[in-house]
Structures are given as C-alpha cells and as structure tokens.
Amino acid sequence: MTTPNFHPARSGAAMAVCCMVMVAACALPPGPVHAVRAEAPVDLEVTTSRADGVVHVSLQVRARAALPSAMVRFVLLEGVKPVAGALETLLGPLSKGESRRVAITLGLPAAALAAGVDVVYGPARKLHKGMVVTLNGEQPRASTPSILILPSGEKLRVAPAVSLD
C-alpha cells in the first residue's frame, strides 16, 4: 500500500525561497497580543556527564523570588529507572537568589528526560517550570513535512494515520 502523490518540500530551491520569505515576514502584525504563560520563578540549568556506563544528571535550581515551597521532579522515558537519586525531591522554601542542586544517575543512555520544579503557593495555585534534557547530544526535531498540493492549489501537511484493524 502506498500513500497518494505527496510532494515533500525538500529541494534547495524551496529552502532558499523559504529563507527569503522569513526575512521579509519577520515583523509582527499590529494589534494587541493576549499571551498567557504562568511559570515558576526559577532558573534551571542541567549538566550531564558519562562515566562507567552511567549518566550523571545534575539540575541546578535558582530562585528568582522567595518561594514558599519547591519540589524537583525528573520524568524519564518509560522503562528507564535511576541507579542513584530520587525522581522527586522536596526542596522546601527557598529565599530569593538561593540555589540548590539535585542529582540523579541513570544506568541507561536515555535519549531524553524532562526535569522541572513545582512551587506550591497554596491549595489554589501551583506554578511549574520545566525543561527537556537530551542526553545523546541531539535536539528534538520535528518530522519532515509531506506537503500535498491539490489541483485546486490547496496545500495540506499530511502525515500517515495508522490502521488499528
């Protein structure tokens, strides 16, 4: 079974046109912007190192404001467990500018993990800030688009659906 006549936009010419357009269309259109983003007021920094077949991951948390209570969480790929260190660590209150470091050691070369901090302000409000850490040096990449052009000129960014039957 094959998919219809898709036309992946991969050519060098297409890329060049894309980049020229990027420059020309860089300015924001006028009008109000209504953004919403509520993140914990912390700075996060991760360092990783490999030795003896394990990966050491160290997350530094620096408070940008006085925090009532903070907790660090690591989320690993399914099936990956830490050799040393806990997936969740309660830091307690942090004063403004204070830094803490939390480390775990992984026995498998996981491709990526997520790390984050919860700051609990009370029963009605919790703020989180997280990051995705890659351990093999590769950044996450979006899949290459398959652009289908219909005779009407309409373009579709098509991915295959998986049959469950």
Binding site: T3, A25, L28, P145, K155, L156, R157, A159, P160, A161
Partner: peptide
Amino acid sequence: ADCPREDCGSDGVVHAASSPSF
C-alpha cells in the same frame, strides 16, 4: 495550520492525516 512563527509568507498549511491507499 502550521505557521506559528508567521515566517511562511502565507497563512501556513493545514494539518492533515491520510489513510493508506486503497
């Protein structure tokens, strides 16, 4: 559509998913 950074020179391309050919 697929142009969140407004750098496509258009309104972007609509997302879609395809069945296998039959």
